[in-house]
Nucleic acid binder design. Sequence first.
DNA 1: GTCTATATTACGATAGAC
DNA 2: GTCTATCGTAATATAGAC
Lengths: 178, 178
Amino acid sequence: MARPPHARDKVLQAYVALLLEGERGATMDAVAAQAGVSKGGLLYHFPSKDALAEAVLERFATVTADDLRAMRVAPEGAAKHFVRTSWQVDHELDPIYRAIVRLAQAGHAGALAAVDDLHRSWLAEIVAEVGDEAVARTIMLIGDGLYHQASMPGTWSRDTFAESLPDLLTLVDRLCGR
Amino acid sequence: MARPPHARDKVLQAYVALLLEGERGATMDAVAAQAGVSKGGLLYHFPSKDALAEAVLERFATVTADDLRAMRVAPEGAAKHFVRTSWQVDHELDPIYRAIVRLAQAGHAGALAAVDDLHRSWLAEIVAEVGDEAVARTIMLIGDGLYHQASMPGTWSRDTFAESLPDLLTLVDRLCGR
DNA sequence: GTCTATATTACGATAGAC
DNA sequence: GTCTATCGTAATATAGAC
């Protein structure tokens, strides 16, 4: 991925953006239009719709590897790092993760497996830190809840619904018995 | 809804079941096939796809009204009632709620508003009980997390992922500072 | 690499027989 | 009330020019 033709990146970015607004609207026509290329041009880079999904999954793999590395060295600990990045909509992982979740919810087997893998890795890190599996799972549910909220457009955005970050981190401490 | 023709109910049940596996797969053809009627037969009862969604929303309204009433009189309190019913996959609200969430994620305005309304009502009940809004919102995130898990078929089912209910309720107590 | 056709299905919905 | 047959459209994908 040193210097791929710029059109490829634009297409992938458009596909992710459309996925966030609903898997159903992320059609080949819509992707081509949003990326500013013709359908033929799109199909040169991605010969099928599934090829688009596979490309997103590849990007997902590199971004999640980075996130897990950051989680391990986070000074605040894995649990708080997890909640903080679940809360931050501007985190690099956020749009790509939500796009993959959309594919998983639509039944895409690869996306399903990728989300599953990531959840197992996150859980392992948090269990290693907090020591208690029940607590770790509960913390993960909070993060999942934040993503669930973000998955419904228009209402209860993180700004209005999600607890402000400091309060949320305080409650994570309380959950851990600290 | 005293004694509607049996075919109508079968169709509605089939539509909800298909929605849970992904909004995209819940086509008129698929619903008719799963309900064991022809497409024409389906369209006699529901003249359009949106009519199907509207019927699910009506059912949702009655079921959520029941749930809110039960929440108010629950001896264990609103918060634990909420977590318990979020955890129970056999709860009457569960499939219909998840179906509505699917419609909301697909951008259906009515479903979006209905989910929003229900969340506000739940939050109000839990805030009234636990007194602290940050704690109430965090408890709601846990419930949302459970639904998020349930929205991805095949992996991390509630049996394997979700904390066993007693542990989860204990942690809710800890969150409330009890 | 990117484009303009065009083929091929899948989907939602209508018409009308029974 | 339920069916078969069919139409119009939109979606994925192919072929081939530039």
